[in-house]
């Protein structure tokens, strides 16, 4: 479990801080990204085991990031979990099927997040 790389993308620094802290304490190697473009660069560079991505971000939104990831032969095996504060904006049920592997609506229980992470990367 330890040393698994997780890209955590969110334009909210506090979000990166608290979840970065939690996941780091749990032993994950958290790579923070402040926006969609950053996130995609980090994913391409670091090849993480999992991506946690916010929906609403500058430059590229979460769904576009997921789209880039899933459209790349090299990256598409990486599970993408979306953490969103705007459940009404996209149809998550449909998106889930195609681009993202799971989603959580903010605020969520830490347990649920960990459950999902464990589901994909043990």
């Amino acid at each position: 479990m330890s040393g698994k790389k997780i890209v955590l993308a969110d334009d909210e620094p506090d979000m990166l801080e608290v979840y970065g802290a939690r996941l780091s304490l749990l032993g994950y190697n958290v790579i923070p990204a402040a926006n969609g473009r950053d996130a995609l660069a980090q994913i391409r560079a670091q090849k993480p085991d999992l991506v946690l991505v916010d929906y609403k971000m500058p430059y590229l939104n979460g769904l576009e990031v997921a789209e880039q990831v899933k459209s790349s032969e090299e990256l598409k095996h990486i599970p993408v979990i979306m953490l969103t504060a705007s459940p009404g904006v996209i149809n998550l049920d449909t998106a889930e099927k195609h681009l993202i592997d799971a989603y959580l609506i903010k605020p969520f229980e830490t347990e649920h997040l960990l459950e999902k992470i464990r589901q994909f990367i043990g």
Binding site: E12, D14, M15, V18, A85, S86, I105, K106, P107, T110
Partner: peptide, 11 residues
């Protein structure tokens, strides 16, 4: 805008 801070506070 409310959800994000709530998530942070909660975490």
């Amino acid at each position: 805008e409310l959800r994000t801070p709530l998530a942070i506070i909660k975490e």
